[in-house]
Design a protein around this nucleic acid. Structure first.
Lengths: 114, 114
DNA sequence: TCGTTAATTAACGGATGCGTTAAACATAGA
DNA sequence: TCTATGTTTAACGCATCCGTTAATTAACGA
């Protein structure tokens, strides 16, 4: 896999188990065992998923005694959506209104600066 | 890779060459050869990337004589952003979507003007 | 029909992804 | 210190991804 940041983020999201883990973390921090509970896969597998999420910056982890707590850090999702926003005009008709509005504002600003 | 729709979409986006192809298609439909031109990889490799994008629904293809034209279909991006939107409240405390969008657009515009 | 152009498919190699089980590590606590 | 608990690392198997080159398919056009 390419190691640029966006690729790492999208790759992390391309697994349903990892997306489910993120969804679970919305409800609050959780330990590895807690996160593993809903899934029919081994603990080491979950551990690896968490590593992937951590490397993508989607979670941060803290240790307290022998427990490793994961917490959600959705900032990378902002980057990912920012990338996709560039395509919004192709599916979102509201964008046209917004874009027109923006253009008007810019024109206005430019005139003000003259 | 899991074969659910979101996984397929995110996996398709997890490659910089494929994202570059999508970016190129914003400017209009293109043939395989045209799409391959900026890259230092072989035509068959591009052909496979296009297949991945097509299976993710991100492009549609038409044939005219011996040319296969690709055109952008960003609908899957809407699905992907829809999934991510559920996390927006965690990164955008102001939650002023319009404002954020305008800010992004302005930045982009400024960069384009440089 | 033959040659040219456009694109895909076939066959292969190497890297990575995702799962497993077994072993190791880290900490708490009797 | 010994044991239990939580988690990670090691080692492996198998599937998939991503690239290559060579061969094949498809359509045009002299």
């Amino acid at each position: 896999m390419a190691d640029d940041r966006l690729s790492v983020i999208f790759a992390a999201l391309a697994d349903p188990t990892r997306r489910a883990i993120l969804a679970r973390l919305v409800e609050g921090d959780a330990t590895v065992t807690e996160l593993a509970e809903p899934f029919a896969i081994s603990l080491p597998a979950i551990s690896r998923h968490l590593k992937v999420l951590e490397q993508a910056g989607l979670i941060t982890r803290s240790r307290s005694a022998q427990w490793r707590s994961s917490s959600l850090n959705p900032e990378p999702l902002r980057e990912a959506t920012a990338w996709m926003e560039r395509y919004r005009q192709f599916w979102d008709t509201n964008f046209d209104r917004l874009d027109a509005h923006l253009k008007r504002m810019r024109t206005q600003t430019e005139q003000n600066e003259k």
